[in-house]
């Protein structure tokens, strides 16, 4: 028995409505896409949906109290919330350089790192504008 999953393609603002026909975990046919990017997206979403994850962590000794960070590669979709929670628990100390790895192998996945997306120097003194 084949079943149908409906998705909206996100590869461009056109937003093609995609239909994925599958039997269990086997993808039979993708229809509704206007270009190949839609077919590729449908396949990826069906077999291994992943999401980019960026968030912030607490930083001490810098002008700002939050440091922006990202996962070095997309996280499995069902693990996004858990990954965000783990990253949230991190505490870092200024100075930090953009690209610095703050945590290796997030969720036990080799090569999935948490990386700073901004450099933050030690704050010389509290800036009135930031209080």
């Amino acid at each position: 028995m084949s079943e149908t999953v409906k998705l909206v393609c996100i590869m461009c603002p056109m937003g093609c409505p995609l239909q994925l026909e599958h039997e269990g975990s086997e993808l039979r046919e993708v229809t509704g896409h206007d270009c190949n990017r839609g077919a590729k997206y449908a396949r990826q979403e069906f077999t291994d949906p992943r999401r980019g994850l960026s968030t912030t962590v607490a930083i001490a000794g810098a002008r700002w109290s939050r440091l922006p960070v990202k996962a070095s590669r997309p996280v499995r979709k069902e693990q996004v919330r858990e990954a965000a929670r783990r990253i949230h628990a991190l505490r870092v100390q200024a100075p930090v350089r953009c690209g610095q790895v703050l945590l290796k192998d997030l969720l036990g996945e080799a090569g999935l790192d948490v990386v700073a997306t901004r450099s933050m120097d030690r704050a010389a003194k509290e800036t009135p504008a930031s209080s």
């Binding site: 980019g52 960026s54 968030t55 912030t56 922006p68 990202k70 450099s119």
Partner: peptide, 22 residues
């Protein structure tokens, strides 16, 4: 704008806002 999606045209790679700014 700590999320990503910046720089795809200019740098040909997907950056977060702070990375683009830096």
């Amino acid at each position: 704008c700590v999320h990503s999606g910046f720089g795809l045209h200019y740098f040909k790679e997907e950056l977060t806002g702070p990375e683009y700014a830096e």
